[in-house]
Design a binder for these strands. Sequence first.
RNA 1: GCACCCGUAGCUCAGCGGAUUAGAGCACUUGUCUUCGGAACAAGGGGUCGUAGGUUCGAAUCCUAUCGGGUGUACCA
Length: 593
Amino acid sequence: MEKIKEVVEKVVKRVFEVEIEAGVERTPEGIEADFATNVAMKLAKEVRRNPREIAEEIRKGVEEDGELEGAKIEVVGPGFLNFTLNDKFFIQEVEELLDDFDKKVKSEQYRGKVVVTEFSDPNPFKVLHVGHLYTSIVGEGMSRLIEFAGGEVHRTNFGGDVGLHVAKTIHALLACGRQFVSSDASRARPPLRGSRSPDLARKLRYADENKTVSPLVADIELLAECYVRGTRLYEEDERARGEIKELNKKIYQIAERGEGNEEGLSEEDKRLAEMYWQGRALSYKYFEQFYERIGVKFEKFYPESSVVERGRETVLRELGNGVYERSEGAVVFSGEKYGLHTRVFINQEGIPTYETKDVGLLLTKNEDYHFDESVVITGNDIVDYMKVVLKSVEQYAPELVRKTRHVTHGNVRLPGNEKMSSRKGNFIKAVDILDDVFERTKSEIIGLAAIKYAFLKYRVGGDIEFDAEESVRTVGNSGVYLLYSAVRGKKIINSALRVETPDILVGLNEFERELAKKFMEYRGVLREAVEGLAPNVVCKYLFELAQEFSRFYEHCRVVGDEREAERVKLVKLFVQVMEHGLFLLGITVPEEM
RNA sequence: GCACCCGUAGCUCAGCGGAUUAGAGCACUUGUCUUCGGAACAAGGGGUCGUAGGUUCGAAUCCUAUCGGGUGUACCA
């Protein structure tokens, strides 16, 4: 497919002196030919000529070119070029792919580029919910696509270790007088592996008596509970709101002083500081364990406290330059003149908001990595917010904004339309999903594959539905189905006996041919996936590939067949493509299932 | 109110820099098979692509309007 594309583009350039991308696709079902392109019609618009005539010229050009020797090329309909290739062509492609797969499939779209990705972004003192699971998987998928395309990727993570949510949580924590079970974060043990019933989460608050649950998880549960309580108080109780705001200021000061620097603090504040640093450490420990479990590795965590000063300085400096302005005692950016809305960067109490922290983050990331591109992956509820922040930064660092790309995804919906909110505490935790699916598959590796695939098969942007039961189904468009097809392939390779004998494919039956045709689509698929940072494109292809392989498997005996060696080659290539594609999705194939 | 996103088969979704007869999966109906591990394959029914206009030789795809759903819209993150 890519070969056809290349040849056609070459011919077009030579004959028409126009650079144009030739979209080559498989022909719809029922049409004799293998592949088709509509370049002639595209070109017709540009050069204002009859598309059929143009197609005719391209056809001649391609025939003269000789690279697609033996191909039957037809001009049909309004100007499609239909290609029917002979087996020799397919065989050659298969052999080439097998010869040096990585090189043949390689993409250069990000070659030499330093790319910083930022995703997941959980807040310390809060619990990881399904949304974090989703965004982590999407972010990892995109990072891998960029890496595959030659980019030097640095995965970063930004989280609110200071801010109102922390004050709310700590307020409730102080009020209830509870202590962390794992008071020393370094002693915290990894969470339980394997099965846990979904409702166990509720029992976790009695974790001190229940030795089967890690102290760390119990502490995080405690924080979650306190966040819910604190939020309720903040909304309902005037006095508590005042106290929380005061607490918020204090926490900022504590964070600013840094850990261990408690000189001159009152006894009460020392206790507060201790609680803050403990809670923060526990949260990061908990995050790390979670990421390790899902196979995501961040190079750097940027706690908000580490960029807030940079942000504040910048905002205040640019306040002097007229980018930001004072309004009602706060520092704001008026987005209206750019068709956006106004946002507060430093509030009336003098505390920097998220906006300012994001400014600091943007600048800090740039200084740390000198990136060519920064990809920020977040939920889509934040699009307009981010536009305002970026527009403000554009006023004094236009280059930085040009290099920044904000990619957004939707929320995870569960069947039955349950609404989730971490403020109310009725959300689904990330571990609940993990545990549920691991329980169903009895395997972490398969369960993880099921979840990742279930999340990534949707186009990034809109809300998605996650159905745990469907995700582990072995039939249909599921990760398990893909895994199974790959494992089957491996099994064949292992039991094949006469691999050594004839090593060149001599001919193809209809199933072999279809499979080979599918292999040829892979490069184009990768190009498209990288271009759009679209893991779902890879998913769709891999599913179709698995179907094609299953068909082949069903109809063509490999082991023991007289054409065993030839067929093993096709199976090998299948496994190679499948593993390669799944790797880009963050999924690994087990040896057995 | 304004802005953005989304309305494609009963359900969940692809397709949307226009183009050959609108595609999958699930569910439903019916077959194949004592298998290189059925966690399989094959066949079938099911859609006026929210609605109405427009541009075009040609529109699910582009434009306009309209209806329905979601999100955001100054001191949360």
